[in-house]
Nucleic acid binder design. Structure first.
Length: 136
RNA sequence: UGCAGAAACAGAAUUGUCGUCCCGAAUUUAUUUCGGGAAGGAAAGUCCGGACAGCAUAGGGCACCGCACCAUCUAACUGAUGGGAUUUAGUUACGCGAGUAAUUGAAGACAGAAAGUGUCACAGAAAAUAACCGUCCCGAUGUAAAAAUCGGGACAAGGGUGAAAACGGGAGGUAAGAGCUCACGAAUCGUACAAGCAAUUGUAUGAUUGGAAAAACCUUGCGGGCUGAAAGGUCAAAUAAAUUCCGCUCAGAUGUUGCCCGCAUCUCGCUUGCGAAAGCAAGAGGCGGAACGGGUUGACUGCUUGAUCACGAUUGUGAAAUCGUGACCAGAUAAAUGACAAUUGAGAAACAGAAUCCGGCUUAUUAAUUUCUGCAACAA
RNA sequence: GUCCCCGUAGUUCAACGGAUAGAAUAGAAGUUUCCUAAACUUUUGAUCCCAGUUCGAUUCUGGGCGGGGAUA
């Protein structure tokens, strides 16, 4: 699965700035009012909103400084998550294409050990399918 | 030869697929294609020094903070380079010895304790104005003579204590002693001459022998405005520069980091009362503080061409400087360099991710090589 | 990012540079009680780490580590 382009999907595998959650307002709403669930080793929060944003689905990736004091390790984990998301985001986006509301959600890494890429990708796929099923 | 420590050097390359950020060009108006670039030696700690920016500023003194052998380098430094003295480890030579000289390393916050105040536990007679034991002299009692006891003196040679005990050991000298004197040696301060830009060194000579600690206060010399890119500038959007309470209110306020001296600036107009007027008095506007609130959470700039990097030449012991040629080498903003394979290879492992930018310092660190030091073994 | 402050028993605090580092409280064991509480007795520390100054450092100095705070 890794390295090969996945055929049969119209969604490109890019991950541009528009697909990242940068608005502080939406972030506050997400953490204050959004619903959330835990899928080890990730904590996922999500909210639907009507703000004018460039992309229908926006994601925020975060690793707490408490668990990983070194910036190198935090960067590494965020890159692994980002990589797994951009390869498998079609699972979520293709189901969202029919709805009008925008979706913002966060992925927080809660484990205290550096993960392997294959574990991260497997969990991200499970996470995305659960998220798309939960929000109808 | 092995192990440990320190220093220097270095901190992988290439290919494929899918991706991120910036710049440029084309196509064309929101996408695509092509080309180029994209973390470090410490990006870290934020310990020094600057650049840059805003605010403040007539001037002086005190306080406060920092630094401290000399010279040089530098934009600057608590940095670096070179030199000096000191301490320390080893070797050799000379000397009875104390020591001296030469040489090879290593170390360091190396101004002043001989300006003043304070401190030095326990032990010890005494911790800086040294008489406890002791040594010696004189007098009295005592005795055959001593011993012993009491009183008055002299003495820092010996003793134990302690981290530290009042230049060293030798000879003379003396009642006993003492740098009291002498030769040798040590240290400190001064003078003259010579060498050196200087620290300082050498020779001659005079005086002195003064315990430690300034990382106790302190003294001397030199330096220091305050705040940091969340600084600062421009634009847009939104809203209520609103309300309440307390204090002061004409000799006070403001400014100068704090304090003092001194200086500068402001003190205005309005209302009311008194008065012929000059003016005087009062009031509010005013100033300061506190409480409770409201709006924004965007964009651009600062933002990367610089005390820059590479190569070469010249000058200098060196840090470094000058000249020439060439290069443009991250600029993000919830924050960009990744993932998975393959090859080269003995191996890809350590510490670790730019946030305004530089020069240092400190700390972290894998492997190979080189140099130095220590230890162990073997050989001679 | 920038600028500050603080580290002593499990916890809250003491300690002119002089040692055997204390106090309260908590914990453990014991005495007392039919049992518990209270009371009494005993017990518990490499002063965060590494260097330096000093005869001697919790204290003074430098570096590191950890924790906390302020700031549009």
């Amino acid at each position: 699965m890794s390295g090969e382009p996945i055929t049969g999907s119209a969604t490109p595998q890019t991950f541009k700035k528009a697909e990242r959650l940068t608005s502080k307002k939406i972030m506050d709403e997400l953490f204050n009012r959004g619903s959330s669930f835990v899928l080890y080793p990730f904590r996922v929060g999500s909210i639907e909103h009507d703000y004018n944003v460039p992309s229908k689905v926006q994601v925020l990736i975060s690793v707490p400084k408490k668990n990983f004091p070194l910036a190198v390790h935090r960067n590494r984990i965020k890159r692994l998550i980002r990589e797994a998301y951009r390869k498998n985001k079609f699972l979520l986006i293709e189901k969202r294409s029919s709805t009008k509301k925008n979706l913002a959600f966060s992925i927080v890494f809660t484990d205290k050990k550096l993960p392997d890429y294959f574990l991260v990708e497997e969990k991200i796929i499970a996470l995305l399918t659960q998220l798309s099923r939960q929000i109808k």
